[in-house]
Nucleic acid binder design. Structure first.
Lengths: 244, 244
DNA sequence: GAGTGGTCTAGACCACACT
DNA sequence: GTGTGGTCTAGACCACTCC
């Protein structure tokens, strides 16, 4: 038996994550802003763990921007309006989390040399081969963003034959054992040209958010370089920051 | 004596933060990407602390996007190109951190009713009085962003008489004892109108990043609602995300 | 198997808020 | 003073990587 009582085959889920989920359900979700959580010492007793473990769970909630702590005062909920945190999620996951249905139109799948920028980002030589996938991504059939994604061809041989209308992360994980673990991301503002605006069904020269992301797998190697252009009228980035 | 050997008057700096700084200096800054840090157990011995404390320091570096960990493998630097994290910083601090000199032109200081959006954000009634400060902010004399900031008049009486060309956070902290501790922030893309573009010295209809921020002090109350419009050609947001 | 990071325990003391 | 969150210790075992 493992240290957790999860069923034999299920992967072990850390206690602090279980406690996080439990706190989320019992003391955060649906609560008005400013609702106090029970003291850490009480929670520790309730859950039968040490205070360190409870704190770990609350650390997670805090960095998700869901609660805040006041030293000597207590821990309080932030309220229902502020939610979405900065996790590495795929477009498909993102859209589903908002209760909508993701779909994609594949505009282009090609192979070719990485070139300068992509090569540098993926730790490849500019002449190494990458697979480039260009997609228009939609939520409930409404265009949301344009995505151009480059993968080292060596890491995902034969990916051109896959159904690329769904989650790329699911394919990378399922077929190639590549698990995205972290990413570096740059967010910029840009103006759409006529072609882009047409595909996104907005007036030309509309504003857009551009996210340029390099994803790394659990072993630390780069596996994806993607540039995603989001409609400014449908997408914004919301997060909590702390001062320290 | 306190638990730290800091000089008597200096505020105590937590060990894990001291260790973070030390690691930053000795094993991160200036190191090529992929450089391994010493094992946590070794660092613990070197610093004369437990492994938990060392881990805490490395947790910070990791959430700053400066290093990444591979279970069973080690801890490695991300490299020099990726840096800036998501801390709550003022424009002045931000610009200085980039080695440039901040300045501001105060365009307007006024008092009036909060109105709907501002009132809601600051937990005030729409009729409560707020001080509105509109500034053009510059780095080395070059216009970088337009900022409109609203404060509850009750919290900062007489702030109109202060010199507002510098850091607002410094005034809030120094004169009013208000210490911003956390904030909620929304990032959007927008297009500048002629007036805004003129002030920022860019062509009309250029793209811009708009950050809408509500800041809270250490006691949990909202103290500032600010909308900042950044030139897209001078500002981008760079950060690391994890999958979990 | 040896070494690494990931999680957890059972305490302790400090700093701060509230009354 | 009492209660809260913030930091720290000195261990332990687990999961994973690399050889």
């Amino acid at each position: 038996m493992t240290k957790n009582d999860a069923s034999a085959t299920a992967p072990v889920r850390a206690k602090y994550l279980q406690i996080k989920d439990s706190l989320l359900q019992d003391h955060v979700e649906g609560k008005p802003a400013g609702t106090a959580l029970p003291p850490e010492r009480v929670l520790a007793q309730d859950f039968g763990v040490t205070r360190v473990t409870v704190r770990r769970a609350i650390d997670e909630l805090e960095s998700d921007g869901l609660v805040y702590r006041i030293q000597g005062g207590g821990t309080y909920t932030v309220g229902p309006s502020i939610a979405k945190s900065l996790r590495l999620t795929s477009f498909s996951e993102d859209v589903r989390a908002r209760g909508r249905t993701p779909s994609s139109e594949v505009l282009e799948v090609s192979q070719g040399p990485a070139g300068d920028e992509v090569g540098r980002s993926l730790h490849l030589s500019p002449m190494d081969t990458v697979v480039t996938i260009r997609r228009l991504r939609m939520a409930d059939g409404e265009p949301m963003c344009l995505e151009v994604c480059a993968l080292p061809a060596r890491l995902a041989p034969g990916i051109e034959e896959e159904d690329l209308t769904g989650s790329l992360y699911a394919i990378l994980s399922g077929r190639y054992g590549l698990e995205p673990a972290r990413a570096e991301q740059v967010i910029e503002a840009t103006v759409l040209d006529e072609r882009e605006a047409g595909m996104l069904a907005v007036p030309p020269f509309s504003a857009a958010l551009r996210a340029t992301r390099t994803s790394y797998d659990t072993r630390g190697g780069p596996i994806e370089f993607a540039v995603t252009t989001y409609r400014a009228d449908r997408y914004s980035l919301r997060f909590a920051v702390r001062r320290d």
